[in-house]
Amino acid sequence: MIAKRTTAFGLKMKHQASLLILLAPAMIWYIAFNFIPLIGNLASFTNLKSVVLPWKIVGFDNFIRMYKSPDFWTAFWNTLIISFFYIVFYFPMPIILALLMNELKNRSFKRAVQTIVYIPYFFSWVVVGSIFITLLAPNRGIVNIIIGFFGGPSDTYFMASTQWFRPVLVMSYIWRQVGYGTVIYLAALSTVDLELYDAAKVDGAGYWLQLIHITLPSIRNTIVTMLLLNLSAVMRIFDQILVMQIPAVYSVSDVLRTYAFREGLDNRAIGYATAVSLLTSLLSCLLVLSMNKISKAIFDESVL
């Protein structure tokens, strides 16, 4: 700390005040639109159906009902399995893609790739769903035609198959989101100091050494942050599943969010639906905390 600042107490106060003023608008918004509605989680302990109808406190009844409900457990395990798939298969994709794009010397090609992979992000999930239904249709879909061309069975109904539906979810998620993810990594990669590479080259370090010793450490912070953000995002995946699932694959695709949505808005059991959401939040809290531990152990960097 520089002597000037520590001596001038007033300056420090002014510094703090300015920082708090900068933070204030966002915090006010968070209180008004995030923390006040979070009070609604108390509905978990009631049999609330509507705020204008009489209700009473039922203690842990909603949680007991959850424990007994086979649908809840289906959704619970699906949430864990699907989240796991997303983290394992989707999460590294934007990093790899950003690194590969970073290797391109041709600026316009780089930009073209970047733009093309970003376009699907503008498609709503309903549209992505219908695109995939067409691509994966039995017999007439392109994927099945290609499989048939190489001598495989061309009548796989991917969208209705209990084995294939989860891979389809992950694939379509990657297809739509990966361009969006790479933007952040490209921004992070642009901050890596080029002189470091020059120095490494003088030392005779090859590509992999540079990758491991310079590139990845430089964007480690971003990777860890994105891991946290992705973790919380995968627990919220909802639109995609809602529009892509069909009855034949309910048992492998129904997740806690879709379950809570159905119970809350279709079945009007708000108390119960809130309890399910609360549990989902606790689950994702648990995931984030354990990921924090792992991240600390491996990267020596905390997620939080």
């Binding site: 968070y30 995030n34 923390f35 979070l38 609604g40 953000l229 809570a260 809350g264 808005l265 939040s281």
Partner: peptide, 14 residues
């Protein structure tokens, strides 16, 4: 706020 999701109903109410 990242972990505890605000559902559509409480959001609508506020």
């Amino acid at each position: 706020t990242l972990i505890f999701d605000v559902g559509i109903i409480p959001r609508y109410i506020v």
